[in-house]
Simulated scan of single mutants.
Amino acid sequence: MGARVTLQTIADQVGVSRMTVSNAFSKPDQLSATLRERILSAAQELGYVGPDPAARALARGSTGAVGVIFTHSVRFAFTDLVATGFLGAIAEELAPTGLSLTLLTSSDDGDIVPARDVAMDGALVYSCDWKSQAVDFLHRRKLPLVYVDQDVDDDIPSVNIDDRGGAAAAARHVLELGHRRIGLLLSGTHGPYGLLATPEAAEGHSSRQRLLGWLDELGPAGAELISARQDSATPEHARWGARLLLDRPDRPTAVLCFSDAIAYGVLQAAAELGIDVPGQLTVVGFDDNPLASQVRPTLTTVRQDLAAKGRAAAAALTAAIEHARTGAPAPVEHIVLPTELVIRESSGPAAAPPRPGSAR
């Protein structure tokens, strides 16, 4: 094995100082293009790839990474189309800054607690239980934070979408089509599952806001509500929740869903039960993820701009990290992005509701 190549090795080869070689890698604007090219060529010839990242991070007091804290498992980031779209936009926005994403769960089981133990310059708290120990650890570490899809905190920058307004638009849509017996399909990981006597058991910021938006319109209209709650938005759970609403004699003529993934489960359950969409049932989702325009019938939904949300979240976090680095007062901005109702094939006028005991 040959001798270890260091910055001094390259400096001796080119005939410059060790600091000049270091600047060629970390502060290229300090050197002429010709000199930097000479140094990099010598480094390549000697087999030197650059300063040790850990040492560079220690020297500048930065890890070069930002965390994204999930309530769900990290697998959720790769399987949920909304999460993947959001994270992709963050990664694209962060690319020019040199910051990388570290995906972490809010789990506090085991010896390693990500929010406590993983090195990062700041974190996005994404759709988490704000009472979790993970969020508490982030605050105690005094890391720059940005909340996304979370209840607003006066002291923490946040990025949300107009969940309530979008849900209200969906509810108005089904009312305008003549629907008065309407199903609400919620999602969550805590509390009772199954049919709900009242729909107020929404969990998390987005769920609560979407429920409030539905009720803003359906309550004054005197609509008859049939609500159910399921565990997560997997296809199996979504079909199970949907059948609670549809496999009954007084089934709703329209179903408003917390997400497009859940709405897809309603479409599957309707097909299994021989219920025509939209002839006998209108289905409305939320998010406008790629699935919404690929399923048949295509799905009426509320669109959120995932790319804009990701860019806004990344920009807010990089600004918070920079303010923390310089010690400058950090402005706290609460961004709310608009939503848009997208009407597709799963919407139809209310059909006569089935009578108890009648054939489907």
Score class of each variant (00 low, 15 high):
Ala3Val: 12
Gly15Gln: 10
Val21Cys: 00
Val21Arg: 01
Ser22Tyr: 13
Ser22Met: 09
Asn23Met: 09
Ala24Lys: 02
Thr34Tyr: 10
Leu35Phe: 07
Ile39Met: 08
Leu40Gly: 05
Ala42His: 06
Ala43His: 11
Gln44Lys: 15
Leu46Thr: 08
Gly50Pro: 05
Ala54Glu: 11
Ala55Gln: 13
Ala57Thr: 04
Arg60Pro: 09
Gly64Gln: 06
Gly64Cys: 06
Val66Pro: 06
Val68Asp: 02
Ala83Gln: 05
Leu87Cys: 03
Gly88Arg: 10
Ile90Asp: 01
Ile90Gln: 05
Ser100Gly: 14
Thr105Ser: 15
Ser107Met: 04
Asp111Gln: 14
Ile112Cys: 12
Pro114His: 07
Arg116Pro: 13
Asp121Leu: 10
Asp121Ser: 11
Ser127Phe: 12
Asp129Leu: 12
Asp129Ser: 13
Asp129Met: 10
Trp130Gln: 14
Lys131Trp: 09
Arg140Ile: 00
Leu143Pro: 04
Pro144Tyr: 08
Tyr147Ala: 15
Tyr147Asp: 12
Gln150His: 13
Asp153Glu: 15
Asp154Asn: 12
Pro157Ile: 06
Pro157Asp: 09
Ser158Val: 07
Ser158His: 09
Asp162Lys: 07
Arg164Asp: 10
Gly165Val: 07
Gly165Lys: 04
Ala169Gln: 13
Ala169Lys: 03
Arg172Val: 05
Val174Leu: 03
Leu175Ala: 11
Leu175Arg: 07
Glu176Phe: 03
Gly178Gln: 12
His179Met: 04
His179Ile: 08
Gly188Thr: 07
Gly188Asp: 07
His190Met: 15
Leu195Pro: 05
Leu195Tyr: 02
Leu195Gln: 10
Ser207Pro: 02
Ser207Ala: 15
Arg208Pro: 01
Arg208Gln: 14
Leu211Cys: 11
Leu212Lys: 14
Gly213Ala: 10
Leu215Asn: 06
Glu217Arg: 11
Gly219Tyr: 04
Gly219Lys: 10
Pro220Val: 11
Pro220Thr: 08
Pro220Cys: 09
Ala221Phe: 05
Ala221Ser: 09
Ala221Tyr: 04
Ala221Trp: 06
Gly222Trp: 10
Gly222Leu: 08
Ala223Ser: 12
Ile226Tyr: 10
Ser232Trp: 13
Glu236Phe: 01
His237Phe: 00
Trp240Asp: 06
Arg243Val: 00
Leu245Gln: 02
Ala254Asn: 03
Phe258Arg: 05
Ser259Cys: 12
Ala261Glu: 15
Ile262Cys: 00
Ala270Arg: 00
Ala270Pro: 01
Leu273Thr: 00
Pro278Asp: 02
Pro278Phe: 00
Pro278Met: 01
Gly279Tyr: 00
Gln280Gly: 14
Leu281Ala: 01
Thr282Tyr: 01
Val283Phe: 00
Gly285Tyr: 03
Pro290Lys: 03
Pro290Thr: 08
Gln294Phe: 13
Leu299Lys: 02
Thr301Gly: 02
Leu306Pro: 00
Ala312Arg: 02
Ala313Trp: 03
Ala315Ser: 15
Ala315Met: 09
Thr318Tyr: 08
Glu322Gly: 12
Ala324Phe: 08
Thr326Trp: 03
Gly327Lys: 06
Gly327Ser: 03
Gly327Val: 07
Ile335Glu: 14
Val336Cys: 13
Pro338Phe: 09
Ser346Tyr: 02
Gly348His: 03
Pro349Leu: 04
Ala352Met: 08
Arg355Lys: 14
Arg360Thr: 05
